[in-house]
């Protein structure tokens, strides 16, 4: 592999843009196809399919064997609420390969001391989420218990492609949340919210709740087609 190809591949990944490296296994020739260039590539159909599945693999075309190194952006977790559960969730999610960002306008909560090694933004979610960009590789967990902070983030997430939206709170709390969303005209989209948040594993401590949330996120990413893919298939 030429160094400039490797650099370009790493650059695309850093920018959270999908790309495919095509390797001719017989002669070692390679080219990098960025997501935006796929339609113009001779292998467009195969590249598009692989990109949607997010899976690397071998293909045959015109009597040649190619290996496609598919690079989808790493999944990202945005936790709204720099709370106790988030302190457990952040390192766990990081270990599982997620880019983790914590958002909470309360500066006493959102400190780097409480959240070493992940990005912490002490701002209102509706101010920073549009810049972060809620793409289809993003999971968002609303953990503040405070509608003033959770709701603006939820409204943005429901209008975006996030593969996972979870919201902390009891069934009662969620029922009230649904009422507010109905007023905002988001009743249909609200069905996507995982609430009460997390897999039902009887979690009690913040760390256990974090496990149940992370398990639910992994399930959403791996077991179901991403929402935009389902739309395309329909």
């Amino acid at each position: 592999m030429r160094l400039n190809l490797l650099s370009a591949l790493n650059e695309e990944r850093k920018a959270r843009r999908a790309a495919v490296l095509v390797t001719d296994l017989a002669d070692g020739n390679q080219r990098l196809v960025r997501a935006a260039e796929v339609a113009r590539d001779p292998l467009a159909e195969a590249l598009d399919e692989r990109l949607r599945m997010g899976k690397s693999g071998m293909i045959e075309s015109g009597g040649k064997r190619y290996f496609l190194t598919v690079q989808a952006p790493p999944p990202r977790l945005i936790a709204v609420g720099a709370v106790h559960v988030s302190q457990a969730l952040a390192p766990m999610a990081k270990l599982a390969g997620y880019d983790v960002t914590i958002v909470d306008p309360r500066t006493a909560f959102a400190t780097p001391e409480r959240f070493p090694d992940v990005r912490v933004i002490a701002e209102w979610p509706d101010k920073v989420l549009p810049d972060i960009g809620l793409d289809r590789y993003t999971a968002i967990a609303l953990l503040t218990h405070d509608p003033k902070i959770d709701d603006p983030a939820l409204n943005l997430a429901l209008k975006a492609e996030c593969f996972y939206i979870g919201a902390l709170g009891s069934k009662k709390t969620h029922a009230k949340r649904l009422e507010r969303l109905a007023v905002a005209g988001l009743s249909v989209q609200a069905a996507r919210i995982h609430a009460p948040i997390g897999l039902d594993i009887g979690a009690v401590s913040p760390a256990e709740i974090a496990v149940s949330i992370l398990g639910e996120i992994v399930l959403s990413l791996r077991k179901k087609p991403l929402r935009s893919e389902k739309d395309r298939a329909a």
């Binding site: 592999m1 160094l3 490797l6 650099s7 591949l9 790493n10 990944r13 296994l25 071998m58 190194t69």
Partner: peptide, 20 residues
């Protein structure tokens, strides 16, 4: 892959092995 790039840029010879 970032490490492979770092090593190469630091002047080391590098190989990448990929499960195909």
């Amino acid at each position: 892959l970032a490490k492979a790039e770092d090593w190469r840029k630091a002047g080391k010879a590098v190989a990448i092995a990929t499960v195909v």
